[in-house]
Structure formats: C-alpha cells, structure tokens
Computed example of a mutant assay.
Amino acid sequence: MDTVVETVREGFVAQLTVRAGEPGSCKVAEAAAAVLRETLARHGLVIVRGLPLAAAGLVALGRHLGRPRPHPREGLFATHPDSPFVQVLRSMPTGPARPGTQVWHTDSSFRPDPPRYTLLQAVALPEKGGDTLFADAAAACARLPRRWERLLDTAVGVHRHPWGGSAARHPVVVGLPGGRRSLYVSGLALDSIVSPSGSAVPVPVGKLVAYVTRPRFVHRHRWTAGDVLVWDNRAVMHRATPVAAGQRRVMHRITVAAEPPLGPVSR
C-alpha cells in the first residue's frame, strides 16, 4: 500500500490518499491508520481518499484511533445493520430536517466525556449542495483578541444538550499535540462561559462562535464518492449545508473516544 499526504491548509486540513490495496479491506484500514494518526497530530481535519470502506472497515479504522462509541441519542439517526457503531445520516429535502446539523457545533460537547474524533464517509451524494464546513478553532485561538485571551485562558464552558438534560463543563481553551491551543466551543450546545469559581465571564457565546467561524478560519469540503473525513473535535467545529431540492445525501458516521481526555492547556 502506498500513501501520500498533502497539505491543504497548513495546520488545519490535510489530504491522505491511499493508492493501492484492496478496497474496503480492514488490513488496508490498519495500514493507513498509522499515517492517519501522524497526520491528525498536525492537522484538525484529514480528508482520506482512495479508501472505500464497508461499515466494518470504517469501524476498524476508528478502532485504531480509540474506542468507537454509540451516539448518545439513539434513534435520532438510524444505526447501520452491520454495526451498532455506525450511524446512517440521511438528508432528504422532502423529509424533516435533522436538528442541529446546519448549526456550527462540536460533536456531543454536551457530554461529560465527549468524543475526540469523528469519522464521516460519503455513501450517496447530491448533484448539488450538501457540502460540510469546518472552522479552525486552533487558528482562531492563536489569533484571539487580547481582551478575550486573558478572560478565556482559564474559563470553563457550560454545554447543554439543545433538547434538555444536565450540563457538562469543559475548558474553553484546550491543549493539542505539539503544545498548540484550541477553543472548545459549540454554537449548538455552549450555553455560557464562566470562571473556575462559577462567576460569569464577559465574553458573549454568540460573538465567540461568530469569531471562530469567520471566513478566514473556514474550510468548505465538497464531497466526492467514497471520501472519509476524520477530524479532531478539540480542534475544529463543523456544520452541514443544505441539500438541493430533489436531491439526497447519505453518510456513515462513527465517533471515537481517545486518550488523553479533554483537558486544559498544560502549564
């Protein structure tokens, strides 16, 4: 198997192309996983091409990054018949909208133990629409206005499920490999920002999310059949874009827990 890694956006997006191997093979996924791990240590988002995977192969790839886990709200998305870890995401313009997918978010940030990685694979694509946008929260953190940098350095984000439930508390500024820092925020679930003692921090959630998602920090992925996108939820936010009328979009997704757990910047 031959692999080629190309930088799309420095420190943010890379493309990993697999040029040989048996399509859908778990062995190929295992061989590609070492390169993928190295690439994820330097980029928040990796586009994997040339590696069309069946459901078992997608899970196998995820297992080399950590522990695949079920979605916290089973039933919101269908489960693949071949694996309890693979969710089938269908965007049908004639059917009900999926809540939250078109809002900037970080997967399951409302959980006390949110997943570190998400793997999303294109199965059926519309002729128009259905792109996915990603925001570089690490670059946004590195360029924070000074008035916010001091306030957010030790701040805590209070995340809640949009449809109720208990809150989860996570550092707003988290550590990444190589000593980098990132902003762990979500337009869907971040309810408030407080100090370690619980007092309000005067940084509006809406303004912070708007800052992280400025065009300079955003990458638009235009899908091709078989693409597998892998991203670090500590380093990027994402959202779906609408599917054109009369079109459909089907994706397979898994989320993965991995060490180290989400935590503040080491000092």
Score class of each variant (00 low, 15 high):
V8R: 04
L53P: 12
E38K: 12
E259D: 15
L65N: 08
P84I: 00
E6V: 15
G263K: 01
W148H: 11
L65Y: 04
Y184G: 01
D113C: 13
R9L: 11
G178I: 08
P196F: 11
P126L: 03
L183R: 00
R111P: 00
R248E: 15
P196L: 14
G198C: 06
S109K: 04
V172R: 02
R37M: 12
V156H: 01
P112R: 13
R69H: 11
V8K: 02
P126K: 00
A140E: 10
A210S: 15
R180D: 03
G129L: 06
I47Q: 10
S166P: 13
V103I: 15
S91D: 14
G44D: 07
P202V: 13
A155F: 12
S83R: 00
V48E: 00
A189Y: 10
A139V: 08
G164T: 06
V123R: 05
H71K: 00
D136Q: 06
A189F: 05
H219L: 09
L262H: 08
G66H: 06
P242Q: 11
C26A: 14
R214Q: 14
D232P: 14
P68D: 11
H64N: 10
V228H: 00
S197A: 12
V13F: 13
G21K: 07
G24V: 11
P68R: 06
E22F: 06
P115Y: 02
V230E: 08
T154C: 08
L190R: 01
G157I: 13
Q87I: 10
A138I: 12
V265S: 00
R180V: 02
A32M: 13
S192V: 12
C141D: 13
H71T: 13
A137G: 05
R267T: 13
T3C: 13
A135Q: 01
Y184R: 04
E127D: 14
H170D: 11
M251K: 02
G206M: 08
M251E: 03
A139H: 06
A124H: 09
V86S: 01
G157L: 08
G175K: 01
A257N: 01
T39M: 01
